[in-house]
Design a protein around this nucleic acid. Structure first.
Lengths: 208, 208
DNA sequence: AGGACAATCGCCCGTGTGCGGTATTTTTAA
DNA sequence: TTAAAAATACCGCACACGGGCGATTGTCCT
């Protein structure tokens, strides 16, 4: 059987693309059968012969690498996309992983590290640089103290479940009037005026 | 000056705790000045003498490691918390990073890897095992096609902003009745019956 | 040619909701 | 200890909302 990891590369810089192709092909366990200078030119080929891993640049002529990943993942669920780019802004990073990229490397990564990353992504990991990992992890950290009291947060949780005054009142063993009062205070504190806005704010600010 | 990384460990298993303390202390560049068998017993000490990195178990007597991280980060913003645990369920992982953990290792990680992780977390990274990295990255991936039509998604976005029928109708140049029809269809497709639930579902399922 | 679905518009009905107040008790903080 | 905030409770009003049911015009797929 063939254990080689089939890699494809999409990169508009001829030098880099050819160099990476060479490095991959000359490394045991890897083969780079497909290389393209744009997403548009890659789509058909990749779909008819899916690689295991796609190395994707972001700044490309025509369709961006991020759009490219999005298109690709709609067709090839099994193929892992590993971004390899100079862009290290939050927007590029988060957009990439949101559309389905499973790893994110910067172009200053040494070739041996890139090969290791290809292997890792193929084994089910998500290789990325240390600072990018930190930024992703930090995006989960929501250690902001809520402006709401404990009771109000409790009410808010029920509010988010779409329960009406009566139901909430019954569940919390208080009167509907009280629930309404809490709602008013919550609205004031969150600077909103409807349930929908309150839910949105609650979820986005991770108050629940 | 002293470049040593000051490490603290909170771990209820005496053997593991002593072993890790020994390993850390005997490694150049590291020192383990503080070790505790519970979060409660650690808090005062850690606050009066903050370490650079805390190795935190999750399954502890009394306060869990996750609660421990939460408490700790409220006081010590600068201290990095690195989870070291047997728990590899999604809930433990995501709760940990949500309360402020910056790394997540499993207990079968070899000691040399743990030391490397301590170093990495101290340098601003977020070390974790490959499969955990993948799970975190995957949680961003929202490549599910919406059951809603384009128009309905547009309506939904306005719905999430808490706009009422009239406002939405005006903005989209359609009648309020039409907006209501769309609402009904959206509710049916999302299996909800109120705006609040619709907003919640929309955000959680990243339909907007 | 026919079915499925999207987008548009319409009506009735009951009630949940938001907004304006006021007020008491308990808990927390200064 | 005293003031502030939180939690509790109540009233009335206008209308926005959700449920039910129906209709017309397109498009798309088969």
């Amino acid at each position: 059987m063939n254990d080689e990891i089939k890699v494809a590369i999409i990169e508009d810089d001829n030098e880099i693309r050819q160099l990476m192709t060479l490095i991959i092909d000359s490394s045991p366990g890897f083969s780079c059968g497909q290389s393209f200078s744009s997403c548009e030119s890659a789509m058909d080929d990749l779909q008819s012969s899916p690689p295991h891993v796609v190395l994707m640049d972001i700044d490309l002529p025509g369709m961006s690498g991020i759009e490219g990943v999005k298109c690709l993942k709609e067709k090839l669920l099994e193929t892992d996309c590993l971004m390899l780019t100079v862009q290290d802004d939050d927007e590029s990073i988060f957009n990439s992983i949101c559309v389905g990229a499973t790893g994110y490397l910067l172009k200053d990564t040494p070739p041996t590290e890139i090969l290791k990353a290809i292997e890792e992504v193929h084994k089910g990991g998500s290789p990325m640089t240390a600072s990018i990992a930190r930024r992703i992890v930090s995006s989960f950290n929501t250690q902001k103290e809520s402006p709401l009291s404990v009771r109000e947060q409790e009410i808010l949780r029920h509010l988010c479940d779409g329960e009406n005054y009566k139901i909430i009142a019954e569940k919390l063993h208080i009167s509907g009037h009280t629930v309404r009062s809490h709602f008013k205070n919550i609205y004031k504190k969150l600077h909103v005026s409807t349930r929908a806005e309150a839910v949105k704010k609650a979820i986005n600010d991770k108050l629940i």
